[in-house]
Design a binder for these strands. Structure first.
Lengths: 218, 218
DNA sequence: CATTAATAACTGACCGGTCAGTTATCAGAG
DNA sequence: CTCTGATAACTGACCGGTCAGTTATTAATG
């Protein structure tokens, strides 16, 4: 059963943190914070439970590491894209939709979002960080872009922050759908296709009917 | 400290289950299933922990009771509305938006949705019930209504199920927003207003550009 | 051999669930 | 109306299991 030539473990200090975070991401995403067992995370990472404490102080610190390191940079990239874009809103939205569509398939972002939603009550600090450093920025950037487009007469009146919510929501719900209902047999959504169709719906739905007007009542 | 005239407890068999479910809803919504303490639920309900077991067998049964009894009937009513409506899609959507807008403010549906999302990994059976008995029905009814509208040439081509997702998503995300980010200081959304604005955006965004066409390629 | 990554056995706190005992309530007797 | 015995709603201390975190020990590596 056990080859004596094979060592019982290897010393690989450099790779451990990343491996642990990846393992933790999987387990946290499936179980939620409270129900996740450190022993299961350790097993996933191919180490013993004690080894986790060589790299992290507490379970909560592992949780933060997962949330911080796995997702933030990518979402931040999307925000930067929105802020930088000067042209017509429709072009920007198509660009963002394409980018977000691929990100959703690449990153394990769905599980993390689920975690943040689920544990917001137990870790208000975490929810606050996510909101202040990430969600609010993205929503704010989009809101600004929409408001500017309203100023140029591209977009018809309406609360620009609500428009931003309308734009983002289906992607978010698509992710949650994948994490929550697909595993129990629900028909999946093709997320990039959802992003593409929705962006066209929104472009059409937000378009100013009367192309002059710019800066009508909100 | 203790008025001897005041009894230590009252016997109120009839009201207890409802009170316990309401208390449990609050605690589960805030903490999630695993992190919720039965003692806290009991305290909220104004009874001792032991009393919980006079009315429910296990913690999980309390959880099911919360999910089952609090929400399902109301959402079902919306579904029935969709199925029954024969007229133009735009009218139906405005009707639904109005109804859903008020329901969101009345019911504690946000907390329950959060719970279902959060605990889907630990209670696949619960997620399955919610999907099969509720979510799939609503999404299906909307999808059918949209497909019919496409057949009448009201709505332009596109996956009707994705359109249904686009319609529902902002309300859902609005609820999640309220539960997750508002408690940590985020600016709230006026949910009925979101519903109203979004339904107009969607009506415009789905409208067939070329009013004849009906039944183009999906 | 010295160093230290990693293990595995261990501890202590916590919590779901139980149950022996307590108390509110009420029916019937006086 | 008062007393009393019967009933069952309710309490709270307790138990057993689980799990985050600790530590004594082992073994990989240079």
């Amino acid at each position: 059963m056990l080859d004596p030539g094979e060592p019982k473990f290897r010393r690989r200090k450099a790779d451990r943190p990343r491996e642990i975070i990846e393992a933790a991401m999987a387990v946290f995403a499936e179980r939620g914070f409270a129900a996740a067992r450190l022993e299961e995370i350790a097993r996933h990472a191919g180490v013993s439970k004690g080894a986790l404490y060589l790299y992290f102080e507490t379970k909560e610190e592992i949780f933060r590491a997962v949330v911080d390191l796995a997702i933030a940079p990518n979402i931040e990239a999307v925000r930067a894209m929105v802020v930088a874009h000067p042209g017509p809103l429709a072009d920007l939205l198509r660009l963002v939709a394409e980018r977000v569509g691929t990100l959703m398939e690449t990153l394990p972002v769905g599980g993390v979002i689920k975690m943040v939603i689920a544990e917001a009550g137990n870790f208000p600090a975490l929810a606050r960080v996510w909101h202040d450093d990430l969600v609010a920025h993205i929503l704010g950037a989009l809101t600004d872009a929409i408001r500017a487009a309203q100023g140029r007469g591209e977009v018809r009146p309406g609360d620009p922050r609500v428009y931003a919510l309308e734009i983002i929501a289906p992607m978010l719900v698509g992710l949650i759908w994948r994490e929550t209902f697909v595993p129990v047999g629900a028909a999946p959504f093709d997320l990039p296709a959802v992003a593409r169709q929705h962006v066209e719906t929104m472009i059409e739905g937000m378009k100013a009917r009367n192309p002059n007007s710019g800066e009508a009542r909100a």
